[in-house]
């Protein structure tokens, strides 16, 4: 079920199956893809091919100990590399011939809006900040930063409410997981002396 076959009458569409003798196409609105979108997809397909090529090359340098009989540690990597290249090449061809993938739907996904790259970058950035703050200020506070940051990026207003919710959640999880379930989450220098927060 790819997006092709939606407009077999349009002769301008490259790669459209020409011998389409079936009944008229379903009356769903064809996804009019802005040409920019295809670049990203092409990059992904090429990256898959490149990874496959790398796997094929690197598999050759895996040390094979003398004791191996028949199938050594290289065989499966060769197979996987081959599959990656095959899938990647097929996808490059698909994308170039105009058959783009169908992006996933979802309850909270608005199919009519364009991808907001800024949100994606900010969310990723928030996670990075979280990673580097865990060991410095402790898990509950790093988690609060992650929660509040992500919520504000996604549209929570006012920001201080998100921050309060995040802090409450972080501390609650610290008490439940660190204190009760004995998971050794670092409480951080500020709460070092509080006994029920420790794993």
């Amino acid at each position: 079920m790819s997006t092709d076959g939606a407009a077999p009458v349009a002769p301008t569409q490259p790669g459209e199956p020409t011998a389409d003798a079936g009944p008229p196409p379903p009356p769903i609105p064809a996804h009019v893809e802005p040409p920019r979108r295809r670049w990203g997809e092409l990059v992904l397909a090429v990256a898959t091919t490149a990874l496959g090529a790398y796997v094929l090359l690197a598999a050759g340098s895996i040390t094979v100990p003398g004791s191996t009989n028949t199938l050594g540690p290289r065989a499966f990597p060769y197979l996987v590399g081959g599959m990656l290249v095959a899938a990647g090449v097929a996808l490059v061809v698909l994308v170039l011939s105009g058959r783009a993938g169908e992006e996933e739907g979802g309850e909270d996904v608005d199919p009519t809006v364009r991808t907001d790259w800024r949100t994606v970058a900010l969310l990723a950035g928030t996670l990075v900040v979280h990673v580097f703050t865990i060991n410095v200020i402790g898990w509950p506070f790093a988690a609060a930063i992650l929660f509040a940051g992500a919520a504000v990026v996604l549209g929570a207003r006012p920001w201080w409410r998100a921050a309060l919710v995040g802090l409450a959640l972080g501390l609650t999880i610290q008490v439940i997981f660190g204190g009760l379930l004995k998971l050794s989450l670092p409480p951080g220098p500020l709460l070092e002396g509080v006994p029920f927060l420790h794993g």
């Binding site: 996670l127 988690a143 996604l154 959640l169």
Partner: peptide
């Protein structure tokens, strides 16, 4: 939804940490 997905991120981070 902003709280929901922020929470998903936080729980995901907790799980792998």
């Amino acid at each position: 939804r902003h709280y929901l997905y922020a929470g998903i991120l936080m729980f995901g981070a907790l799980g792998s940490y």
